[in-house]
Structures are given as C-alpha cells and as structure tokens.
C-alpha cells in the first residue's frame, strides 16, 4: 500500500463520532470542545460524556489530543499560556469553565495522577497529608492521621509502608511511588480521578497492581484514564474512546471496541495496522 500517495483528508474521514459518546446522567459532560495552542488546533469538536463510577479509557496514537482533552477536564491547561479552550464542560451540571468556578476547588473535586510518578520530596506521610492540609479537611492531628492511613489503605500501599511513614516518598519503588501519588490524590476525596498513562513508567507487576487498584477504585470514583497500552485499556475500562488527530473517532463499550470496532481507523489502530 502506498502511504504517500494515499493521504485522505482526515476531516473527511472522521465526520462525526461513531458509537455512543453520550450516557444518561453523566458525571462529566463535554460538548463541542475545541482546543487551540496559539493558532494550531489540537482538538476538534469533541463531545463526550463520562458516566458515574465508570472507568473510561482514552486511547489513540501520540499527538491525538487525548492527554490535552484529559487536562482540560481539571483545567490543568490553564497553566499553559498559549492554550485556549472552547466548548462546554459540565461536572454534575456545573460549568467547569464558568467564571465563578475556582480551579482550586475544581481540582479538589477532580484529582489527577500523572505519567511519571511525582511524589513530593517529602515523607510518605506528608505527601498524603498535603492535600487534606491544603483544603483544611482534617480538624486535628488524629483526623489527619486517619485520612492518611485510610488513603494509603485504599491505594493498597499501607501494608508496605506502615513502618516507615516518615521515610521519604522518593525512596519508594516506581510502582509504590505511583500508588503513593494515587493515595495522595484520593486523600482529598475527589469525585473524579484523571490518570495520564499512570503505568507507562512501571514494570508489568507494578502495572498489574495499579490496574487492580483502578478496578477497586471504581466503586467510589469515576476514573478517566489515558493509556498507550491497548491491553490496559481493555483490561481496566468499561468504555473506550478512540481519538485520532484531535478528533473523537469512536466511543463504545470496551468489549465491543476491542472485538468489533465500527470505525476503520479504530480497527486499524487497535489491530496495529497502517492508518
């Protein structure tokens, strides 16, 4: 197949999102999202609902805009000066980008875990306690202790670190660091957790632990996960959204996406074919 000769205009190929981007009573709903970096458009007219207590995986080739979209959800893109976001974002019917919406409050409700484990160079305890202290979630030391312990337990890290809560968070292994970051995030009791390739820097065993954890967290949180590993998306998510060159190509039940995708581009991507 001649790749060079055949370069169809992507905007013709992807006219509208295939599958079921909308759900009943979404936790987060986004409509007609466009994102620009200066004059360059990174995301084109994406509309997607994120259901309550579901794990939704955003997949797609590098530069497809999935991370950009993810960072729009908790307004992390605010810190990038050249970035301009338009469209409608709602968290439980509240406008995320409203003038009255404080990004600090928003980020307390929508937590985020990053690709590279990034614990603060402080003790394990202080890492987890930072968020609750910041937001004044604990009235006294005993309450704070309880939050720290329960967060570490939920993140499945407590048993491993209970004897050294005052040791540095950066001294842990990669997988433990990432679980520490997750514990730190859930210590603030967010409603939604965004995960940007949370396991890409980890070995398979640590990855499996994180995936298991994600599955458990689904009971209490809504999780949006960006991943490059299609197997991971297939394993942890209930719904999968496929992005391509800034467009949302297909959204659907994960089982369906991985056995019988509807759009040719999705098919090509998940089977590892030339686009």
């Amino acid at each position: 197949m001649n790749q060079v000769a055949e370069a169809p205009d992507i905007h013709q190929v992807i006219k509208e999102t295939v599958g079921s981007p909308f759900t009943d009573k979404p936790k987060i709903s986004t409509r007609n999202v466009d994102v620009f970096y200066d004059d360059k458009q990174a995301i084109f007219d994406v509309s997607l609902d994120i259901g309550n207590h579901e794990v939704i995986a955003l997949i797609g080739p590098s530069g497809c805009g999935k991370s950009t979209y993810l960072r729009c959800l908790n307004r992390m893109n605010d810190t990038i000066q050249s970035c301009r976001v338009t469209g409608e974002f709602r968290l439980d019917e509240e406008d995320i980008y409203a003038r009255g919406m404080d990004p600090v409050l928003l980020r307390a409700r929508i937590g985020m875990v990053f690709q590279k484990p990034n614990p603060f160079p402080k003790s394990i305890y202080d890492n987890v306690a930072y968020g609750p202290k910041l937001h004044g979630l604990a009235g006294n030391r005993a309450e704070l202790d309880e939050i720290v312990v329960s967060s570490l337990q939920k993140a499945g890290l407590y048993e491993e670190v209970k004897d050294r809560l005052n040791a540095s968070g950066t001294g842990l292994s990669g997988g433990q660091q990432q679980r520490l970051c997750i514990a730190r995030t859930i210590a603030v009791s967010p409603e939604v957790i965004l995960m940007d390739e949370p396991a890409s820097a980890l070995d398979p065993i640590a990855t499996a632990t994180i995936e298991e954890l994600i599955d458990e967290l689904r009971q209490n949180y809504t999780i949006v996960i960006v991943t490059h590993s299609m197997q991971q998306a297939a394993r942890v998510s209930q719904r999968t959204a496929y992005f391509h060159l800034g467009k949302l190509v297909e959204v659907g039940d994960t089982n369906q996406i991985f056995t019988n995708p509807q759009h040719q581009l999705t098919e090509n991507y998940i089977t590892g074919r030339f686009g």
């Binding site: 197997q231 297939a234 996406i257 056995t259 019988n260 995708p261 999705t266 098919e267 998940i270 089977t271």
Partner: peptide
C-alpha cells in the same frame, strides 16, 4: 500478538 478486533475474530 494479543490480537484485537478483526485479527482476534
């Protein structure tokens, strides 16, 4: 290969 979609089918 962990085939998916059409390959899996």
């Amino acid at each position: 290969r962990q085939p998916a979609a059409s390959d899996l089918r």
